[in-house]
Amino acid sequence: MELDKIHHVAIICSDYEKSKKFYTKTLGLKVISEIYREERRSYKLDLSVGSHYQIELFSFPDVPARPSYPEAAGLRHLAFTVKNLSSYVDYLETLGVEVEPIRIDPLTQKQFTFFSDPDGLPIELYEE
């Protein structure tokens, strides 16, 4: 038995509209579906990442803040690949997103950098 691939990554946000705008407008992820679950007072937004993966963006009332940046136990960060890192960083910066300086992975010699979503979740961009 073996796992085939990651199906989705679930993210809980504190401000649904702000996070929805960030993931759809800033990062350009496409909406697969969006539902409001009355019994949970919660939105669930499914977003496509390329043609194989998806992010589930959830809202819940009164969510606790993230414990620390980024070294708390649990998910450390979310990473996306891009074809041209410098161009994508320029694009994000024109939208007012603060992006860390580009670094080189010492093992692969590939470029990478980090920025954060509206709730401070670290997001990595890794050049293919």
Results as ranks from 00 to 15, higher is better:
residue 58 F to N: 03
residue 125 L to G: 06
residue 112 F to A: 01
residue 21 K to N: 15
residue 15 D to V: 13
residue 51 S to G: 13
residue 72 A to G: 12
residue 5 K to G: 06
residue 55 I to P: 01
residue 93 E to F: 01
residue 62 D to Q: 12
residue 111 Q to N: 10
residue 3 L to V: 15
residue 78 L to D: 05
residue 3 L to Y: 14
residue 33 S to H: 06
residue 67 P to E: 03
residue 102 I to M: 09
residue 107 L to T: 10
residue 8 H to F: 09
residue 122 P to I: 09
residue 100 E to M: 12
residue 67 P to D: 02
residue 61 P to R: 04
residue 46 D to S: 12
residue 110 K to S: 13
residue 25 K to I: 08
residue 60 F to T: 01
residue 57 L to H: 01
residue 71 E to P: 00
residue 123 I to W: 03
residue 48 S to Y: 06
residue 102 I to H: 03
residue 23 Y to H: 00
residue 97 V to L: 12
residue 21 K to C: 12
residue 121 L to C: 07
residue 58 F to V: 02
residue 64 P to M: 04
residue 74 G to L: 07
residue 22 F to G: 08
residue 10 A to Q: 13
residue 105 D to G: 11
residue 76 R to T: 09
residue 23 Y to K: 00
residue 102 I to Y: 02
residue 72 A to N: 15
residue 31 V to T: 14
residue 40 R to S: 08
residue 102 I to N: 05
residue 28 G to Y: 02
residue 123 I to D: 05
residue 88 Y to S: 10
residue 78 L to Y: 07
residue 99 V to T: 07
residue 42 S to R: 01
residue 5 K to V: 01
residue 87 S to E: 15
residue 49 V to D: 10
residue 53 Y to C: 03
residue 30 K to V: 14
residue 85 L to H: 01
residue 71 E to R: 15
residue 88 Y to I: 04
residue 87 S to N: 13
residue 26 T to M: 10
residue 97 V to S: 08
residue 102 I to C: 09
residue 14 S to T: 15
residue 54 Q to C: 10
residue 108 T to V: 00
residue 90 D to P: 00
residue 9 V to Y: 07
residue 110 K to N: 12
residue 45 L to P: 05
residue 45 L to W: 02
residue 39 E to I: 14
residue 13 C to N: 08
residue 67 P to T: 04
residue 6 I to N: 06
residue 81 T to A: 09
residue 103 R to W: 11
residue 19 S to R: 08
residue 75 L to H: 05
residue 128 E to Q: 15
residue 49 V to R: 03
residue 11 I to S: 07
residue 124 E to D: 11
residue 47 L to C: 07
residue 97 V to H: 05
residue 89 V to H: 01
residue 1 M to Q: 12
residue 1 M to W: 08
residue 58 F to H: 11
residue 78 L to G: 07
residue 76 R to L: 13
residue 16 Y to N: 06
residue 87 S to V: 06
residue 11 I to H: 07
residue 60 F to N: 04
residue 31 V to S: 02
residue 54 Q to D: 05
residue 100 E to Y: 09
residue 113 T to F: 03
residue 8 H to P: 05
residue 120 G to F: 12
residue 85 L to A: 02
residue 85 L to R: 01
residue 111 Q to G: 00
residue 114 F to W: 05
residue 8 H to S: 09
residue 79 A to C: 15
residue 25 K to H: 15
residue 95 L to A: 11
residue 17 E to K: 15
residue 87 S to G: 13
residue 45 L to E: 00
residue 24 T to W: 02
residue 81 T to K: 13
residue 80 F to Q: 03
residue 57 L to K: 00
residue 88 Y to W: 09
residue 103 R to I: 06
residue 42 S to N: 03
